[in-house]
Computed example of a mutant assay.
Amino acid sequence: MDEHRERWWGRWTGAMRSAWTRLVAALRRLWGRSEATAALPPVTEADVADAPANFVAPEMAPDAVVVEREAVPALRGRGAFVDGSFSNAAGVRPYKLFVPAALAPGPRALVVMLHGCRQNPSDFATGTRMNEFAEAQGFVVLYPGQLDRANHLRCWNWFSPDNQERGRGEPSLIADLTRYVIETQDIDPRHVFVAGLSAGGAMAAVLAATYPDLYAAVGVHSGLPHAAAHNLATALSAMRHGPATRSQPMARVPVPTIVFHGDADTTVHPDNGEELMAQARWAIEAKADAGNGADMAVEEGQVEGGRAFTRTLHRDAQGRCDAEHWLVHGSGHAWSGGDGKGSFTDPKGPDASAQILRFFLEHPGRG
């Protein structure tokens, strides 16, 4: 075994022992048992060989701390899906990072995916199939995770004023984690995007509003607009009835936005999707396009054997679609076109993952 393989062997053996110990401890707590720790399954040389050559083990960032991380062996012929934990002054959150076995030539893209309530990064990856797209197209996917102690339903706290501003709370944590991955994975800063579902979609909207210099485009699925609420009571109202007030033109940097929402969603009112479009289009710069040839187009479509949808495209003065709204008819609070093995998915709808990725790749940052 050469030096490189010995190094991987040592790292993975230690990581697997640590993971196995924590798993057994968790099961003991769950079942109320006190048996001794079970033996660690043997690690074979083949496990070490599965590590993709292009995976870069993250190092300590100067303005943040990686509390815990461990590589998990990838399935043979597939990319690596690794666990980590990241902190800054706002707190600590776990994450998972998917790095494909073969990165696409040219700029490395990064897609940040924010799960919804009662979900976690692994479940969200399964439901959206984003790792499969990443493996096929050669981009990196980051899945920040929420903690039970931060929100008992594992929702991102998008409705708290502390989490609606740049440099504070959960937005700062996710933004710093994003910068960390950009640096350690050699990501092109012009190709960094963020998307989310439900509370994750609402937090994606917050990030687009507060870090328009970091994220080139945003995808919001079944979410809410930035600052739609300022506490739990107003959050529930916005979710049930839509935004209490409508956006007015403001000095906001426009970020290309794609929205998916089911018109049968009884968890987050579909009017929130319309308000997201208003925020995207009513930024001062975007509003100026209205007198310079900008237009809107509406298309009706049908998934074969599945749901009908209405797609609305807003084009700027140069004819580029900078805001896109998909209203999926008959769909509830679920990721459209998702895999039924994950939670909160609607396999009958148009493929939100494919369309969001298409939109992202059409909108690189200004760089």
Rank of each mutant, 00 (worst) to 15 (best):
Y215P: 01
A216V: 00
G219L: 06
H221G: 12
H221R: 15
H221T: 15
P225H: 12
H226C: 03
A229F: 10
A229D: 09
A229Q: 11
H230V: 11
N231Q: 06
A233T: 12
T234S: 14
M239E: 13
R246K: 05
P249Y: 00
M250G: 09
R252N: 01
R252L: 00
V253F: 02
P254I: 05
V255M: 02
T257L: 00
V259F: 02
F260S: 04
A264E: 15
A264D: 15
A264T: 14
A264W: 14
D265S: 08
D265I: 12
T266N: 12
T267H: 10
V268P: 11
P270V: 15
P270K: 11
D271H: 12
G273W: 09
E275F: 00
E275G: 01
L276Q: 11
A280D: 08
W282Y: 14
A283N: 04
I284W: 08
A286D: 11
K287L: 13
A288Q: 06
G291D: 08
N292D: 14
G293M: 01
G293Q: 05
A294D: 03
M296L: 02
A297R: 15
A297P: 03
G301M: 02
G305P: 11
G305M: 09
R307V: 00
R307L: 12
A308F: 02
F309A: 03
T310A: 00
T310L: 06
T312A: 05
A317R: 11
A317H: 08
